[in-house]
């Protein structure tokens, strides 16, 4: 069986700026998989989407989508992929319903023929079907863009940062929708800068500056990238952060919500008393310290520190 997406040694540089967007990039995504590209701005996510949807050419390397070559068989690919770009790209002056009909027509089909696939999402838009797309809220625009990307029953769906700037509740709902689509057999490649969303994917690739830092399941990535780590808090969190960074055995220390995560230098024999004495001597009160497991952002920070 073909993989949904197969990428081999892709390289892409933008000549004007000289920016190297992707460097010797390879990745295999199985049929029916919900695959996440996790990485910050500048990781190369959008460039990869544009290459796979046949909008730009790589400098080097090959890729296949649903078995079709991105260069020789671009017209085959364009018929069977759905693409939701990061930037809202629907017609602002057309209504919700007009946009949907337009995209169906472009793909030689009708809204009615494919309504099953979008029904769950479209019912939420129905009350506003006569509203112009440009007048919708962020969350509603996102739902409409997803409907338009789905209206020709694509085999592979590309979603470029669909949840950026979206609040936590709407983000959760969006991922629930993706679960539904996956169950209908659509392969999905989705990118996000929110690392907690990695947990919603079958597998993920952590990306930084055009390179793959790691590929695995969410649990797999956490499991193999564990390092001894402490979570600390005290009455004065900002001072605590500065002081922990000055502690001689500190490899690095960053804030994680209500606590700071501290990674000690490799080979340092951890003695809790030593650290406590150090902090108490600096006047810290109400210190709470416990051993913890690395979260996805800890792992990302760890891996990206190795790339420099």
């Amino acid at each position: 069986m073909n993989n949904a997406i197969s990428i081999k040694n892709i390289k892409k540089t933008y000549p004007k700026t000289g920016i190297l967007a992707l460097e010797d990039f390879s990745l295999e995504i199985a049929d029916g998989e919900l695959f996440g590209l996790i990485g910050p701005d500048g990781a190369g996510k959008t460039t990869l989407f544009r290459i796979l949807t046949t909008l730009i050419l790589p400098d080097f390397g090959t890729a296949k989508v649903a078995g079709f070559d991105i260069i020789k068989q671009l017209w085959d690919i364009r018929k069977i992929v759905g693409y939701m770009p990061g930037k809202f790209s629907l017609y602002q002056d057309l209504t919700v319903e007009e946009n949907l009909r337009f995209f169906a027509t472009v793909f030689n089909t009708s809204v009615e023929a494919n309504y099953d696939l979008i029904e769950d999402i479209y019912v939420q838009l129905q009350p506003f079907k006569n509203r112009r797309a440009g007048k919708l809220s962020g969350g509603m625009k996102q739902k409409l863009a997803l409907c338009c990307a789905l209206i020709h029953q694509p085999r592979v769906l590309f979603l470029d940062e669909p949840t950026t700037g979206v609040d936590p509740v709407s983000r959760k709902e969006f991922w629930d929708m993706l679960d539904q689509l996956k169950r209908k057999g659509i392969s999905i490649l989705v990118s996000t800068p929110y690392m907690d969303e990695a947990a919603r994917c079958d597998r993920i690739a952590l990306l930084q500056k055009g390179q793959v830092l790691d590929v695995d399941t969410y649990e797999g990535i956490l499991l193999k990238n564990q390092k001894p780590m402490l979570a600390l808090r005290s009455a004065h969190m900002f001072k605590l952060l500065t002081d922990l960074r000055r502690f001689p055995a500190t490899e690095r220390c960053y804030s994680f919500g209500s606590v700071h995560h501290l990674v000690l230098k490799a080979g340092y024999p951890y003695r809790e008393n030593e650290l406590m004495d150090y902090l108490q001597n600096l006047g810290h009160e109400d210190i709470v310290c416990q051993k913890i497991k690395a979260e996805i952002e800890d792992v990302f920070i760890d891996l990206m520190s190795g790339v420099a």
Partner: peptide, 20 residues
Amino acid sequence: DEPTGGVDPITRRQFWDMIY
């Protein structure tokens, strides 16, 4: 207004150091 959207986890924290 949403100053840290889309930046990497280290930069996001460096940004908060500046806020502090």
